[in-house]
């Protein structure tokens, strides 16, 4: 037999053997999967305590930031190589360089990174697709730019300060209770008041920034006359 064919057969045998070995290893990994664990698709990353969080990256996978007892970061197994982290005194800077796409429904994206912490003072977001929720605290500042989309849910914050620029978007999607709501929006940033109760609202809008208010939002603010149309806006 020709030398080349012997080498070709040898290579094929190595490749086949490789499939068998990797499959055996995968089967072993499969037995380790705890199906009851809600974070089974995630890997934990050790993080130092921090007060401020800065995340830059892409929007292909959503980032969930929520209140929890400990400081934890969980990254989807397959996206681990897109994750980078840099701790500076009281700030944690995270890079989550997943792909950037023009999504029409960013809320439908799979969650790729979950961060929990007992208390968050300052959150800076750039280019990411986020879900911020369940924070019960006195103050919280969120600053965002570069097409960042942030969905806010289950927040109970006395003073919430939201600052948006560069086509970014805040959406109060579910069950938010805010005492004093401060909004600084500029460029083409926007904000949607789907579900939020607030006592005081202090907006500062520049350029073509926009806020979508609903009838119930105005009722809550006890604004005198409400001109309602059929859509409820």
């Amino acid at each position: 037999m020709k030398q080349s064919n012997i080498l070709l057969i040898l290579l094929s045998l190595i490749l086949l053997r490789g499939i068998y070995i990797t499959d055996r290893l995968l089967a072993r990994q499969y037995l380790k999967v705890n199906l009851d664990d809600p974070y089974k698709n995630f890997d934990s990353v050790a993080v130092q305590p921090f007060k401020a969080l800065r995340i830059t990256g892409g929007n292909g996978y959503a980032i969930r930031i929520m209140q929890g007892n400990n400081f934890t970061a969980r990254v989807m197994h397959s996206r681990k190589s897109f994750y980078s982290m840099n701790a500076l005194t009281d700030t944690l800077a995270i890079g989550f360089a997943v792909a950037n796409q023009d999504y029409q429904r960013p809320e439908k994206c799979t969650v790729g990174l979950i961060i929990t912490l007992p208390r968050l003072d300052f959150l800076q977001l750039s280019g990411t697709n986020n879900e911020v929720g369940q924070f019960h605290q006195d103050t919280l500042i969120i600053q965002q730019d570069k097409n960042t989309v942030t969905r806010l849910k289950d927040l109970q914050v006395d003073c919430l300060n939201l600052q948006g620029s560069g086509l970014s978007y805040f959406d109060f999607i579910q069950n938010n209770n805010v005492g004093n709501l401060i909004a600084h929006l500029q460029n083409n940033a926007s904000m949607d008041f789907h579900q939020v109760n607030f006592k005081q609202f202090n907006p500062v809008l520049r350029d073509t920034a926009a806020i979508v208010l609903y009838r119930q939002s105005l009722e809550m603010a006890r604004v005198g006359v409400i001109a309602s149309d059929r859509s409820g806006r």
Binding site: I19, T22, L25, Q29, Y30, V33, L35, H77, S78
Partner: peptide, 23 residues
């Protein structure tokens, strides 16, 4: 993916099983 991972469904979601990092 060959030599990489596989996925299966459990309770309506995809569960991914990956090879250990060194492999």
């Amino acid at each position: 993916g060959l030599y990489n991972y596989f996925q299966f469904r459990h309770a309506g979601e995809n569960v991914y099983v990956y090879l250990p990092l060194y492999v």
